[in-house]
């Protein structure tokens, strides 16, 4: 246990925070959520993290001794299984993000240029899937992609193939499922950012001699970069840390990072391993998010100094 001590005499930030809390300068309404966050997220996370750096002894279900150790981390980092698994997860998440962008952008663009009904239909089609759980949507893919599923029976009936294709329980099934399930998360921020801009900008570009394609390239696309950044960050995080879709569509021999954490915690009950894996998962995820943020920032320098 660490004791937090406030520097004597001077008003340290800790003291000022306590002061601010007690005087209630607008912080009070946020206190319940801060408490919930601390209890539900920060403290458990700290505990989990501590497990990754210690050897544990349990008795009657409780941890009785915890000694500092780096072995779990070094073992994981030198284990090729971890490298392969995290590479696969990263690869899957990045491809999912890429395809979500490729499929989502035209939809968002259609929303921008479409009429009232186009907009409504796009919104309904985008939001409706979010109202059902991801598990249900994943099961739908089981039905579609399975050996007797819609895809295979159609291909068989038109004699394109004579044996059902094995799509289920492959990397492709996981990718297809992930892209479909995370597509709305890409489309919504794109729509939000793209429709925030004045339609006159497009007219101005056309008036200045830009073709539709040039307008898309020089005006609509650069202005939608913040949306792309947000969407990509969301889709990446969700795909990188998902374990429902890979479990259901990837089959029993498809392993991604989140599934690995789940199994280490629940089945192997090896929490030090689970903790280290989730730490690696989180750190790598943060690294990618920082990269996405840096790229986005670089492409949106114009948003800075907006209030200047």
């Amino acid at each position: 246990m660490a004791n937090v001590s406030v520097p004597a005499g001077g008003a340290g930030w800790g003291e000022r925070l306590v002061d601010a809390l007690l005087s209630g300068r607008g912080v009070w309404p946020a206190v319940p959520s801060i408490v919930v966050l601390m209890v539900m997220a920060v403290i458990p996370f700290a505990i989990l993290l501590s497990l990754g750096f210690s050897d544990i002894e349990v008795a009657r279900g409780a941890i009785i001794s915890q000694t500092f150790s780096l072995t779990h981390l070094t073992t994981a980092l030198t284990d090729p299984l971890y490298w392969i698994t995290f590479q696969r997860s990263l690869n899957l998440a990045l491809t999912t993000t890429f395809f979500c962008l490729v499929f989502g952008y035209p939809v968002a663009y259609l929303f921008l240029v479409g009429g009232r009904w186009t907009k409504r239909i796009i919104l309904i089609l985008t939001i409706a899937p979010l109202l059902t759980s991801g598990i249900v949507r994943t099961y739908a893919w089981l039905v579609i992609l399975g050996g007797r599923g819609v895809v295979n029976s159609t291909l068989l009936s038109i004699d394109l193939i004579d044996q059902p294709l094995r799509i289920m329980n492959t990397h492709w099934a996981v990718l297809i499922g992930m892209v479909q399930i995370h597509l709305p998360v890409m489309i919504l921020p794109l729509i939000a950012v793209m429709s925030r801009h004045d339609t006159r900008l497009v007219e101005a570009a056309e008036n200045l001699g830009a073709s539709q394609l040039a307008t898309l390239r020089t005006i609509i696309f650069p202005l939608s970069v913040p949306g792309i950044g947000t969407g990509a960050a969301l889709v990446f995080t969700l795909s990188y840390t998902t374990f429902v879709v890979p479990q259901l569509l990837g089959g029993g021999n498809y392993l991604n990072a989140a599934t690995m954490v789940y199994e280490q915690v629940v089945f192997s009950l090896d929490w030090s391993k689970g903790s280290v894996s989730s730490l690696i998962l989180m750190v790598t995820c943060l690294i990618v998010l920082v990269i996405i943020a840096l790229i986005t920032n670089r492409l949106t320098r114009w948003t800075r100094g907006r209030d200047a």
């Binding site: 089981l142 399975g146 050996g147 007797r148 599923g149 059902p164 094995r166 289920m168 329980n169 479990q247 259901l248 089959g251 029993g252 021999n253």
Partner: peptide, 18 residues
């Protein structure tokens, strides 16, 4: 072999003819 993640999922794989 084709691998099922859990017994119920393996059961479904037989049901679906995989």
């Amino acid at each position: 072999p084709l691998v099922g993640r859990s017994p119920p999922l393996l059961q479904q794989m037989i049901e679906r003819g995989e």
